[in-house]
């Protein structure tokens, strides 16, 4: 099914029976446009994963070079009741991708969230700014090298507890 978009197709094992394609960053926009033209009319979900400390085999299809970041887009074709997932490898030294805003305007907030949480920039995005964190927040919280910010719990009134 997914071969027709000219991108490597994911194996069945890692995706649990769900259709996955793996375009390269340079193919990203072209493949997305082909997918859009093929009837996938809604961008359901858009997120990223930081594979910095991933220990297991990522089971990427042959020819796909693993990178630190992976952007994952889930698409829906209402007409055919089909889902398709696109996974693209984004290198750590140049975390940029073209925006999908022109194909699916609904990507606006989702791409802003990925920018906010992972620091992946989307070229051509109309308003690439932080969305969940304060505008002056340092760092990108969902990166694996960003500390969770857990602070040790102090039991302030511990001496009174019996």
């Amino acid at each position: 099914m997914a071969e027709r978009y000219g991108a490597p197709v994911g194996g069945d094992r890692p995706s649990r029976g769900q259709a996955v394609i793996h375009p390269s960053p340079s193919q990203w926009l072209d493949v997305a446009a082909a997918v859009r033209a093929d009837g996938f009319d809604q961008l359901i979900d858009f997120t990223a994963v930081d594979y910095l400390t991933y220990g297991a085999d990522r089971s990427l299809p042959e020819g796909v070079q693993p990178e630190r970041f992976e952007v994952v887009a889930s698409l829906m074709s209402h007409e055919r009741r089909e889902r398709l997932r696109m996974r693209v490898q984004v290198p750590a030294d140049d975390p940029t991708l073209p925006t999908l805003f022109d194909l699916w305007p609904g990507s606006e907030s989702l791409e802003r969230e990925v920018y906010d949480m992972f620091g992946i920039a989307f070229e051509g995005h109309p308003d690439l700014s932080r969305i969940l964190m304060p505008e002056d927040w340092p760092g990108y919280p969902l990166r694996k090298d960003y500390d969770s910010g857990r602070i040790p719990v102090q039991f302030k009134a511990a001496s009174n507890v019996r």
């Binding site: 890692p14 359901i44 297991a56």
Partner: peptide, 16 residues
């Protein structure tokens, strides 16, 4: 190991 997406129809829409 692997990845999976599951969605349900919540009162507000697709919750995945």
């Amino acid at each position: 190991a692997g990845e999976a997406y599951a969605a349900v129809e919540s009162p507000r829409g697709e919750l995945g």
